[in-house]
């Protein structure tokens, strides 16, 4: 490291208040957003004595994760001290590059229902299958199906009208999909039916049937990623937003504070005993901008978002838990870098 960069600091931020605000905040105003783009050039603030380059140690010092709510298939957490390109890469990997299993080939043996074969096949493909994709390989084209790259389900539903007039099987549901294991697979998943591969939800309607109509199909599940087709995407959504930061000028007090408080549909503001208003629940803020719409309050309320504070939410479709999905995404990110590295090194030899 040169002497010059030793003099640069990272801890204190920029001396200029305006620039520091630009660096760390996205400002929300009535006409729109200001400074949405971060400044990433290493030497951007050199003349002000601030080191904007990447340093692993200071990244580690600043980085933290805080879980806000966790259910098996719904995870919300704060990720602090990371920049948008990294958070965005993880979001994109979650949506498009974490593999799952989904129905890819459908062999139609009989279909006398109203739904065409190709529409039926498409609907079957979109049913989330609850099975750990890490147990399977990607299927190579022009190869036979094997136990470790393919799962087979059979769907056989016949709609009938009984003597007393009740109709059975008026709707073919995802629970009618029966897993057809090979011997190896039976061993792999054990005897407990809860551990067996199955549709994540039992009651997804596949099609409506009238008495006398039948469908009989065989479905072949393969492993792939969401970039190939959205049916392989492991998440309903993976998204993030930046933490809102709302500052109210101290001059807003008493009656005025009450008016401002009542403007917010999300009840973000509380009023202290002294009559001072402050944002008590910034996490609830939806950035609806209602609090700055009134010209009276516009100059008094500062609506901002903190540039490196992400509120990440991952909603899984069921193959893996949200926690596992995020772990997988990080591993895939590393793996992608490794592949590029290997390919670069190959070029040089």
């Amino acid at each position: 490291m040169s002497d010059k960069s030793k003099l640069l600091s990272r801890t204190n931020g920029l001396p200029d208040k305006n620039l520091e605000n630009k660096r760390t905040r996205v400002t929300v105003t009535n006409p729109g957003t200001e400074n949405p783009r971060g400044t990433y050039y290493s030497g951007a603030y050199t003349s002000l004595g601030y080191d904007n380059s990447f340093n692993l140690e200071s990244f580690k010092d600043n980085f933290s994760i805080n879980i806000l709510s966790e259910k098996p298939y719904e995870l919300v957490f704060e990720m602090i001290g990371v920049d948008a390109p990294i958070a965005n890469a993880l979001r994109r990997i979650l949506i498009a590059e974490v593999p799952t299993m989904a129905i890819e080939k459908v062999y139609i043996i009989n279909n006398t229902s109203l739904i065409q074969d190709e529409v039926l096949a498409h609907r079957l493909g979109l049913i989330p299958i609850k099975v750990d994709p890490r147990k399977f390989n990607f299927k190579l084209p022009n190869k036979e199906y094997t136990a470790d790259d393919t799962l087979i389900f059979s769907l056989k539903v016949k709609c009938e009208k009984l003597a007393d007039g009740t109709i059975v099987n008026g709707t073919a549901l995802s629970k009618h999909l029966q897993w057809m294991p090979t011997e190896d697979q039976q061993e792999m998943f054990g005897s407990d039916p809860m551990d067996h591969p199955r549709p994540f939800d039992d009651d997804i309607p596949i099609m409506k049937l009238k008495p006398g109509q039948t469908i009989e199909v065989q479905c072949y599940c393969e492993k792939n990623i969401g970039r190939e087709h959205i049916k392989w995407s492991p998440v309903c959504t993976a998204s993030y937003r930046l933490l809102p930061s709302i500052t109210v000028d101290p001059s807003v007090k008493g009656e005025k504070a009450k008016i401002l408080q009542s403007k917010c549909p999300q009840k973000v503001f509380d009023i202290e005993d002294s009559g001072q208003i402050y944002a008590a629940r910034p996490l609830d803020c939806t950035m609806c901008r209602e609090c700055i719409r009134d010209p009276e309050f516009e100059p008094k309320v500062k609506l901002e978002r903190i540039r490196d504070h992400f509120i990440f939410s991952i909603e899984s479709t069921g193959a893996l838990t949200s926690r596992e999905l995020f772990q997988e995404a990080l591993k895939i990110f590393v793996e992608k870098c490794n592949i590029i590295e290997t390919s670069l090194n190959k070029l040089n030899n």
Partner: peptide
Amino acid sequence: SQEALLNGLNDLKNISNHILETFNQTEK
């Protein structure tokens, strides 16, 4: 430029690994 790219890939891997480590330490 190739060295720069390799350094960049390395940094990304370090970031990812650190996020994973921190994430694994968080309470269930």
